[in-house]
Design a protein around this nucleic acid. Structure first.
Lengths: 195, 195
DNA sequence: GGGGCGACTTGACATTGTCAAGACGATAGC
DNA sequence: GCTATCGTCTTGACAATGTCAAGTCGCCCC
């Protein structure tokens, strides 16, 4: 329960980079045990600091969760960019994009939840660091769809509506896989059928 | 905070139907304030009983939540059945089905969450009352798709995969509307484009 | 009319988030 | 070199919560 990771420096009083350590430990806890409720005090215990130390960096529990979500959305974007870059065919690119989205949710379900938790970060008022990442993500999807449309795929389709539909489908499949309602292996076939 | 609804009978000791009252009050709390964490003690206070009374009917907090989810899945199924029954054209039927799904999530977000919360009720081991409802729901979707295929829609499409894709899309749109990421009005157009 | 049992209460405990106030240690100005 | 200051962390308290354990109340049946 009260482990002491190697991040703790020799100086017993001043923790080298407590903020970072808190974020890392928090993400670790959430990912090793989905369903954990992330106690602030437990986190402090793990890092060997007092139960109030975390509050020096995060106003309250939700602030920590929100910061975690900010980091997670960056990871999600990176995973998608990498998947898209590995493909050249527009059709395969779109499929890779969706697969990366679902894989992220399957591999890091709590991170995925954090990204979309409206209670933590209402989408109409995103945190300053989050807004550009959201825009980048939308752009990525929009560009993939536009490229595909340029090849003559489904002529006359509305790019905007198609993007929404694709996002919806990927998001739904991700949620359902995350919840164990459909097996992860089924995804590729479904995505391939959709595009 | 400590209201006393009319369900309390004259008998001060024996509450008429505490189990029902608890479920109703719980759903009421969750729906009047999304984001509430549903305290057992608060619930007991609202019904004017001791803080332990709820535990006579529900082993713990999760058991109550699970029972709430069981009820919610019935409501979701009913809403979809009603929507489908109102349409005759197979195409419109499928759209109505999706719309009902999304509308349920938009109107009763917490109920929707409860239905799909894998921590409360793992889908590979559903509660006895829940299993038939899940099956009925799958059948409803399957029949809608099969009917549509019979009209010559997308010849050669795999019914199974199509059903998964539709479920995924509806679920994703529902989640995104719930989270405020896309406006509810956009749904009809997207659904119509998809089918 | 007494025993049994279902429905509810009282009391206690550990845990949690968070407020308030203090202690420690480096750094800068004199 | 001494001291004031400020960021960093600690100690102590409090109310709320979930939940265990042990009553108490009132009805019903033998």
């Amino acid at each position: 329960m009260s482990s002491r990771p190697a991040t703790k420096p020799a100086d017993a009083y001043h923790h080298g980079d407590l903020r970072r350590a808190l974020l890392d430990a928090a993400m670790g806890v959430l990912e090793e045990d989905p369903g954990a409720s992330l106690s602030m005090r437990d986190l402090a215990r793990r890092l060997g600091v007092s139960h109030q130390a975390p509050y020096h960096y995060f106003r309250d529990r939700d602030a920590l969760l929100k910061a975690l979500g900010d980091a997670a959305i960056g990871d999600l974007l990176a995973a998608q960019q990498q998947a898209v870059a590995a493909q050249t065919d527009p059709r395969e690119r779109l499929i890779a994009l969706g697969t990366a989205y679902v894989d992220f949710a399957a591999t890091r379900p709590r991170a995925f939840e954090l990204v979309f938790d409206a209670r933590l970060c209402p989408p109409d008022a995103p945190s300053p660091g989050r807004a550009p990442l959201i825009r980048a993500n939308e752009d990525l999807l929009g560009r993939c769809i536009a490229d595909l449309c340029a090849t003559g795929w489904r002529p006359g389709a509305d790019v905007e509506a198609t993007a929404l539909a694709m996002w919806g489908t990927a998001h739904g499949l991700a949620s359902l896989v995350m919840g164990g309602h459909i097996p992860r292996e089924a995804i590729d076939g479904v995505l391939r059928q959709v595009v």
